[in-house]
């Protein structure tokens, strides 16, 4: 999975540079987040602007990141969801779990 990772202060932004997040590639995001947690970086924003399609494995990877960030007193926030991706969060009711922002600036400003 192609990921673009940048840092601003103590917040890491991961931009998923893929059209699909599914059972084939979501494990890569999960592993990348675990590496960041091991490095003590526990405040993450995930930019999903490029993602047109997400399945239950993609959602599962984000839940994993959310749980691990919270367990380390950090947080994981989402931004820039395309409408069909947003609808998947609503279908699975995960929109009640994640903080979801319209753009990256809002997400960064919420920490």
């Amino acid at each position: 999975m192609q990921l673009n990772i940048s840092e601003q202060d103590d917040i890491v932004n991961i931009c998923v540079e893929e059209e699909r997040m599914d059972a084939h590639n979501s494990g890569d995001l999960k592993e990348q987040m675990l590496q960041l947690f091991d490095d003590g970086k526990c405040n993450l924003t995930i930019d999903l602007s490029k993602v047109r399609f997400i399945d239950s494995s993609g959602l599962g990877a984000l839940v994993s990141g959310f749980k691990n960030a919270s367990a380390r007193d950090g947080s994981l926030k989402l931004c820039c969801l395309q409408p069909q991706v947003q609808s998947m969060f609503e279908l699975t009711r995960l929109h009640r779990v994640f903080e979801i922002f319209t753009n990256q600036e809002e997400a960064l400003g919420s920490f």
């Binding site: 959602l59 599962g60 839940v63 009640r96």
Partner: peptide
């Protein structure tokens, strides 16, 4: 539930 990573498919 919200904290489950799998089981939604």
């Amino acid at each position: 539930d919200a904290s489950d990573e799998g089981g939604r498919g």
